[in-house]
């Protein structure tokens, strides 16, 4: 069965870049969200076994999504994908339950390595 994954970014191009960087042959069902509110709706609909989450977004940002998921009992592999490369940003998202932090522009090899590290079937 394909793995439901959710790609969250306010930029259509950024979502495209991320989707292109996913491992070839990974059997996935991709849902896209343009902000944190849409992301939570998709998450609640069971579309996010793995979530790729941007931080800087209108409506609800990535931190807000992580806080909500944490409050509700996080049950998703969240990989934060962000241009914010401050060490503190990385620390904060980890504290909020994100598994990993990937900087933009995304490196396909890094994404594959993270997925393998956490034993996500590719």
């Amino acid at each position: 069965m394909p793995t439901p994954i959710l790609v969250v970014d306010d930029s259509v191009m950024a979502r495209k870049m991320l989707i292109k960087a996913l491992p070839a042959g990974w059997d996935v069902e991709i849902t896209q969200a343009g902000n944190g509110v849409e992301a939570l709706a998709a998450y609640r609909a069971g579309k996010a076994e793995v979530m790729f989450l941007d931080l800087t977004m209108p409506e609800l940002d990535g931190y807000g999504v992580l806080e909500t998921l944490q409050a509700e009992g996080l049950n998703s592999f969240v990989i934060v994908v962000s241009a914010d490369i401050q060490p503190l940003a990385r620390e904060r998202v980890k504290q909020l339950g994100a598994l990993a932090f990937v900087k933009k522009p995304v490196d396909p090899a890094q994404i594959e390595a993270i997925l393998r590290e956490y034993g996500i079937a590719l």
Binding site: T56, A83, D84, I85, K103, K104, P105
Partner: peptide
């Protein structure tokens, strides 16, 4: 956005 991440 990517560039300003570096600036920030």
């Amino acid at each position: 956005n990517i560039a300003m991440g570096q600036a920030g």
